[in-house]
């Protein structure tokens, strides 16, 4: 079953500079970013971006600093207008909206979380949280009640009357997330929301997001420069480089079939046991009666190792969601797949 794309980008290009229209043809014809910069004094933000984003999933965009991640996410809610191309969100071509319609469209469809939090420093946690609702004209006491609900939800119960500068970075970003969720918009845009946080806090926040998403099932666009974070959160991952998408797919696809050496250099460091699923390495045997211990086909290899070791066995049967046998994984196959391939020099 192929779900209809919820967000669609068609040949989107963005050029920064004095006169973007004069060079847009070159950009559409795949001119190199450095060439355009040196010879034409314009900067490519995005170049011929095409992607379909499904509903209710986490779509990650990953890339190094300057690869165009922030530019891309800002095209979705049109904080940045494209130089050429089309962006369709929920069947609306957002590039054609006038100013007033765009404001309404943002109110109804988007909430955004920022790398540097971008909280309102003069407001308390409570009034920061209901900012989006206030903008939409929601009145007291619904305003406060909704905000209070989400403040509890992100674990900031009791901090309602604090100001942002009295909170740690992690707590400030919880406010940022509460503000976004209070809005109840179907699409959540997150531009490197956890990049400014300490590693332990970052993991805590990732886990919170996963828990929330299980319940909320929003369409989340998540930006990161960290592959581990991308693999942990992303249902789909697109990798950006110099304003272009160079590979797009599930985390497992990217790990197992890196498109080029640029990507395989990234993936070389990854803990593959946490990404690759049992289904990928199992052998199909024709047998009916299966072992007592089984494992789901989506389970990661790390999990399979854990099961085998704790049961003191070196093979385990894999079952599908209907508990039907589909194959068997062997410890040595699993171990071989977990070891990273030797990186190309």
């Amino acid at each position: 079953m192929i779900s209809k794309p919820y967000i669609k980008l068609k040949n989107v290009s963005k050029v920064f500079g004095q006169n973007p229209d004069t060079v847009i043809d070159l950009v559409q014809n795949n001119i190199d970013k450095t060439e355009l910069q040196n010879d034409y004094n314009h900067i490519i933000g995005l170049q011929n971006i095409n992607i379909d984003i499904p509903k209710n999933k986490i779509q990650v965009f990953m890339g190094l600093s300057g690869s165009g991640k922030s530019t891309l996410i800002r095209h979705l809610n049109q904080l940045i207008r494209p130089t050429s191309g089309e962006i369709v969100v929920n069947n609306v071509n957002v590039t054609e909206l006038n100013k007033k319609d765009l404001i309404n469209f943002r109110r109804e469809n988007f909430a955004m979380v920022f790398q540097k939090f971008a909280l309102l420093p003069h407001r308390t946690v409570l009034s920061n949280t209901y900012f989006g609702l206030q903008i939409r004209g929601v009145k007291s006491p619904e305003l406060e009640n909704t905000a209070k609900y989400w403040i509890d939800k992100v674990g900031l119960d009791g901090f309602e009357n604090y100001h942002p500068n009295q909170l740690s970075g992690g707590m400030q970003q919880r406010v940022g997330i509460a503000r976004a969720l209070a809005n109840d918009a179907p699409i959540l845009l997150m531009d490197e929301p956890f990049s400014a946080l300490d590693p332990l806090i970052r993991i805590e926040m990732q886990d919170m997001l996963i828990t929330l998403q299980k319940e909320l099932k929003k369409t989340i666009i998540f930006i990161t420069h960290d592959l581990d974070e991308a693999l942990k959160l992303g249902d789909n991952i697109a990798i950006l480089r110099d304003g272009k998408i160079i590979q797009s797919g599930t985390g497992q696809d990217i790990i197992l079939n890196p498109y080029d050496s640029y990507i395989s250099n990234f993936t070389a460091q990854v803990n593959r046991g946490k990404v690759i699923e049992c289904e990928k390495v199992m052998k199909k045997l024709s047998k009916d009666a299966f072992s007592k211990v089984t494992i789901a086909k989506e389970a990661k290899l790390e999990e399979a190792v854990r099961v085998m070791i704790s049961n003191n066995i070196n093979e385990v049967d894999v079952v599908n969601s209907k508990k039907k046998y589909i194959g068997t994984v062997y410890l040595d196959d699993v171990m071989a797949s977990i070891i990273n391939p030797i990186a190309e020099p």
């Binding site: 904080l79 404001i103 943002r106 109110r107 955004m112 971008a118 909280l119 309102l120 900012f131 903008i135």
Partner: peptide
């Protein structure tokens, strides 16, 4: 701070709302 203004824009604040809030 422009970042705060951008946040307001992203939530669909009008010019008057940005001014007042």
């Amino acid at each position: 701070n422009q970042a705060v203004i951008e946040a307001a824009d992203s939530y669909g604040a009008s010019n008057t709302q940005k001014l007042i809030y």
